[in-house]
Computed example of a mutant assay.
Amino acid sequence: MADYGHDLSFGIFVTPKADAGPHIIELARRADAAGLDWVSVQDHPYQPAFLDAMTLLTAIAAATERVAVFPNVANLPLRPPAVLARAVASLDILSGGRAELGIGTGAFWDAIAAMGGPRRSPRESVDALREAIAVIRALWTPG
């Protein structure tokens, strides 16, 4: 097996179905008790059958003790980078350092556009991701 220079970590990915909120929290508690490292949820704000990812991750962090949480992946076209940076930083502080961030370029452009987000070409998506990473890193840099 390849050596990536760090220990392997393991976790679960839960679908944030709106009608399964208590079950999702219970799964996260079990993952925490079992010693897993991560709980992640997908971020599709335009999906009416799903809970909001950041709100759900906050509830998971509040219901667990050691497992880290992250969006898998945050929907960049519908979450402006500066706002996303603040949300994840706040969750990280409130959870005692247990929040991470995964971001992507976006997909499902019709749904994003229907929610008022931009419709981007592949090139525009990658450019926006680069810019978002720079903004988020700048906001997370002390001083």
Rank of each mutant, 00 (worst) to 15 (best):
L78C: 04
T64G: 10
N75K: 09
R79T: 11
A62S: 13
R30N: 13
I24T: 11
P142T: 08
M1A: 15
W38P: 06
G143Q: 11
W109M: 05
D19G: 10
P77K: 06
D52G: 07
P122G: 11
Q42A: 14
S90Q: 04
L129G: 04
S95H: 04
A62I: 01
T105Y: 01
G104T: 04
I112N: 10
G106S: 03
I133E: 10
V73I: 11
V73F: 07
P118W: 05
A62R: 12
V83D: 07
F13L: 14
T15A: 12
Y46G: 12
V67P: 08
F10K: 01
P71S: 10
G116W: 13
R130C: 15
V69T: 14
V39H: 09
A63S: 15
P16S: 08
V14F: 00
L57S: 05
L91C: 05
I25H: 08
P81M: 06
L94F: 04
A28Q: 07
G143V: 07
M115D: 15
V135R: 09
F108G: 05
A82I: 01
D52N: 13
G97P: 05
D32G: 10
A74S: 14
W109C: 00
I112Q: 08
A132Q: 08
F108K: 15
S9N: 05
V67T: 12
A111D: 12
M54F: 15
A99G: 08
F10A: 09
D7E: 13
A111V: 00
R66N: 13
A61H: 00
V69R: 03
P48L: 03
V126I: 12
P71C: 14
D7L: 15
R98C: 01
T141Q: 08
H44V: 03
G97R: 00
R79G: 05
I24Q: 06
P142A: 12
D92H: 15
D19I: 01
A62Y: 00
A134N: 10
V69Y: 03
Q47T: 07
Y4C: 11
R120A: 06
H44L: 03
A85H: 06
V14K: 02
L76N: 05
E100A: 15
A74W: 07
A18K: 13
A99T: 04
T64D: 09
V126N: 02
P81N: 06
A68L: 00
R119D: 09
L94M: 15
S40Q: 12
L101W: 00
P118D: 10
A59N: 06
D43K: 00
N75D: 14
A132P: 07
R119N: 12
S9T: 15
H6P: 00
Y4A: 12
F50C: 11
A20F: 01
I133D: 02
I103T: 14
P71A: 06
A134Y: 03
G117K: 06
L101M: 07
F13V: 11
A138W: 13
P122V: 03
P71W: 02
A61S: 14
F70H: 11
W38H: 12
A99D: 07
H23T: 13
G117W: 03
A85P: 14
V69K: 00
P118Q: 08
V67C: 02
A53W: 01
